[in-house]
Amino acid sequence: MQTAKQKNSSLDRVLIQIFLIGNAIIMLYPILMMALSGFKTNAEIFTRPFGMPSSFNLDNFKVIWTQTDVPRYLINSAIVTGFSVLFLLVMGTMAAYALSRYRWRGSIMVSLFFLSGLMLPLRLAIIPLFIQLKAMGLTDNPLGLIAIYTAMSLPATVFILTGFLRSLPAELEDSARIDGASELRIMVQIMTPLISPALVIAGIYNAVPIWNDFFFPLIFIQSPEWKTLAQGLTQFFGEYSINYGVLYAGLTLAALPIVVIFIAQSRRFIAGMTAGAIK
């Protein structure tokens, strides 16, 4: 009986592994092929679609680096994402701090104000937003994107950070007050460092979708000078539509930064990106 059960469970284990490995191949193979194809010439792509490239020469990548706007798109995306995350973390912390560390009349109303933002799909307000940003001179301007991303991210950020800030003991604050620290100082020197894991989670939670966003730049950025990566790729695909090696190289290059960070910090990424869905 015991042995039969054990056999059964070891068979289970093999089947599970087969299923998981199969899935892993399905997930990894396309990404691997994308990267390998980036090293191939057009001819190789047609003649040896599955094989390794004849050499790992960087010609395709050189074309992208020297002849296209992709490097600029990368920089633009980094600027927009970096500033958006900075602003949303600073403002998110401010709001969450006021909501979680003080008792005051109306705090529930203000919490609802932020929470209701979670339910408003801003994409559907794209028309008034477009008119409004145009009037404010924020179209074709990275500041416009930064402002939108900051605003969009605030509800979830406040939500995540409030939870963490609430869990900090009140005695720490009291202790700092007795030590003579001002409220600002308590927030900056004592409490905020203690939620740095939460700041990382909130940062990743927002940074990834901002970095990857395509919709808002598509509408608000026209001049190539400020196009972001995801949006710029569509431009690039139009221009190099038949040079497949270069296209694959471009995709690989565009995916590279975030993949590298993800592999180095996979646990934080997974925790961060699923933060909104796990209570």
Partner: peptide
């Protein structure tokens, strides 16, 4: 390892 692999595409841009 499986967790990381299954999650890998999630972090990529839909455009890519």
């Amino acid at each position: 390892f499986y967790q990381v692999v299954f999650f890998l595409p999630v972090i990529l841009s839909t455009v890519i």
